[in-house]
Amino acid sequence: MKKKKKWPEDWQDLNPGCMVFEPGSAREYHTGSWRAERPIFDESKCIRCGVCYIFCPEGCISQNKNGYFEADLDYCKGCGICAHECWPRAIKMIEEG
């Protein structure tokens, strides 16, 4: 398969009016690289309420097959909202690196 170019190379490659026909294609860009801290989920404390999921500005937290929540680190910017809002304190932010 032809590798998708990051930028349309020639002017003829541009969509009319710079319209974008691939909904949600911003996912091609991984904002995870911005992160200074990452969330660590402690399943022993998690009550699976989903407060982290509802408050994530990236929408990158989802429930795994066991019902616990986890962040998709491709997109997590490390804002720390989930850790701050998790009232059973099941999420901790630790430094990247």
């Binding site: 930028w7 349309p8 020639d10 002017w11 003829q12 490659d13 541009l14 009016g17 710079c18 319209m19 974008v20 026909f21 909904p23």
Partner: peptide, 23 residues
Amino acid sequence: KIVSMGTLGLPEIFNETAKSKDE
């Protein structure tokens, strides 16, 4: 059929948008 119209054009494509408008 979902479309986004009126997107942001960064410097990397702006010359090309101008050329396209002119042509």
